[in-house]
Write a protein that binds this DNA or RNA. Sequence first.
DNA 1: TCAATTGCAGACACTCTGTTCAGTAAACGA
DNA 2: TCGTTTACTGAACAGAGTGTCTGCAATTGA
Lengths: 198, 198
Amino acid sequence: MAEDRRTRRSRRALGTALVELVLERGFTALTVEDITERADVARATFYAHFRDKEDLFARVTADLLSELSERLAPAVAESAIGFTGKPVLEMLRHAHEERDLYRIVLRGEGDGKPLQMFVDACARATTEEFRARAERNAVRPRIDPELLARVWVGEQVAVLRWWVEQDTPSLPAAEVVRMLLDLALHGRYWASGFEPPA
Amino acid sequence: MAEDRRTRRSRRALGTALVELVLERGFTALTVEDITERADVARATFYAHFRDKEDLFARVTADLLSELSERLAPAVAESAIGFTGKPVLEMLRHAHEERDLYRIVLRGEGDGKPLQMFVDACARATTEEFRARAERNAVRPRIDPELLARVWVGEQVAVLRWWVEQDTPSLPAAEVVRMLLDLALHGRYWASGFEPPA
DNA sequence: TCAATTGCAGACACTCTGTTCAGTAAACGA
DNA sequence: TCGTTTACTGAACAGAGTGTCTGCAATTGA
């Protein structure tokens, strides 16, 4: 017995209603009744499943995050050598599928808490990846891996947000990844048009 | 007649009370009464000055932003040639002085709205700066200046947040600036310890 | 089919909001 | 210094939203 069908229905409906409404009016502006009305569910039912709207939001984003890390796992394992960009590409694909939710999270809705969780999770994973990679290839980082991870994730999130907020995607995911690789290899100085200094 | 002293006193008190309390409990958890109590001001007085707590927060952050851009102006004008890092250094100094407020904003309190304003303002200014610089030095950007600006600002914000959230600053501002310059020049690949590829 | 579970509608006390107002205190200009 | 202007106070107000609880109806899984 996996779960009562009614339970599943209600939870799903409430989740999607939340996402829709946050996109339309913003998280703080929403009422629990707004959500239940959109989901066509009684208000009392909401409280049977979630403590409050923050709780609902937290669960929705937590699900998204675990879905992402599942999809990322093979790509990360595969590109164990260097900066292949495979995980980034996979993330962009995921973001494309779950565009609405990504928008909401990246806008920092809900006091930015879901976003911080997202960022921190990415930063931790990236830090470890950097450390492992340095070890494997026997090189010494010129900058602390943790800081470097923060920089990398910050860049990542900025690009992701920009990409996801566009009404008509100006660049395909593969292009974005190539660009980011170029940046990682040559630096911003090169990217802005200058010749690399000796 | 600049402004009534009582008015100034009340506004200041409410502003600092807000910052303190957001740092302690988070923005959404706060009540208008919490703020007025901390500020030792009648609740009715609050509404004589601000529409709601969002309004208060918006004004506090707007003030911070204009203060920052004032301080940045000379540094930007001075470093018209290339990536001197002077504006970044000035920003870090400012962040050090207004540490509490910077923390709050960078945490995305208030549904991330103040942060978005901050980021967008920086991104616009940076885009223009990049364009102007390319024009002046007669080089053609290899990546769209607007995207490059987003990347740069994203990195910036990530570092800023990391730096401001540390209990005991592990790196002095000047060190951070030098690091960022290195990154801009050589890229992350180099920073993580690998030799630059031919 | 039947027992168990979930959803439903409505009511409840409670907290917070944003507004109003008459009385009091402080600041200002001359 | 004094009169006038202005801001602050404390209290009360209706309204909206919250979170909880009820008995009853509908669905479910076995």
